[in-house]
């Protein structure tokens, strides 16, 4: 089974509570550039949420130091001790869910911790599970 953050664009109103919670939790500052979940405005009140689907794992295959691996719950994790910050993972991510901020040592990504889920006022986010693709 794969644990992941399920995003429901139709419910999102673009309040960015999720990005503030995420960046505060992991970077101690409210800054959407340091949030693992991203809220993209599409215009006319529509939004698109981006977070790692934990499924494609192209970053896992690309990492030269095997700093990126899949944990027991199916979540793709980065081991900062092994990461050399090359950003190859950022380049191969097809949905730009692997993130970095300028000058930061390591890339970062959603690890389906659920912090944002609890604070989303519109229930646009859920921690869900899905089957491994064979």
């Amino acid at each position: 089974m794969i644990k992941y953050l399920k995003t429901i664009d139709e419910k999102c109103v673009g309040c960015t509570t999720c990005t503030a919670v995420c960046s505060k939790l992991y970077f101690k500052e409210g800054n959407p550039a340091k949030s693992a979940i991203q809220v993209n405005g599409l215009g006319k009140g529509a939004f698109h949420l981006i977070a790692c689907d934990q499924e494609c794992r192209k970053c896992v295959a690309e990492c030269p130091t095997q700093a990126i691996s899949v944990n027991k719950t199916g979540v793709v994790m980065i081991d900062k001790k092994l990461c050399v910050g090359c950003l190859a993972c950022v380049a191969v991510c097809p949905i730009e869910a692997m993130r970095y901020y300028p000058g930061g040592k390591n890339p970062f990504k959603c690890i389906a911790c659920g912090a944002c889920v609890k604070t989303c006022p519109k229930q646009a986010l859920e921690i869900a599970t899905k089957e491994e693709r064979v």
């Binding site: 050399v84 090359c86 950003l87 380049a91 191969v92 970095y100 300028p102 000058g103 040592k105 390591n106």
Partner: peptide
């Protein structure tokens, strides 16, 4: 202990930006 900025670059963010541009071009 190799890190992103083991070279102590004057502008490590620029190194990332230029590198990522080429990574993406290659991909």
């Amino acid at each position: 202990g190799v890190e992103q900025n083991s070279n102590d670059a004057a502008d490590p963010a620029a190194v990332q930006r230029i590198g990522l541009k080429l990574h993406r071009e290659i991909i």
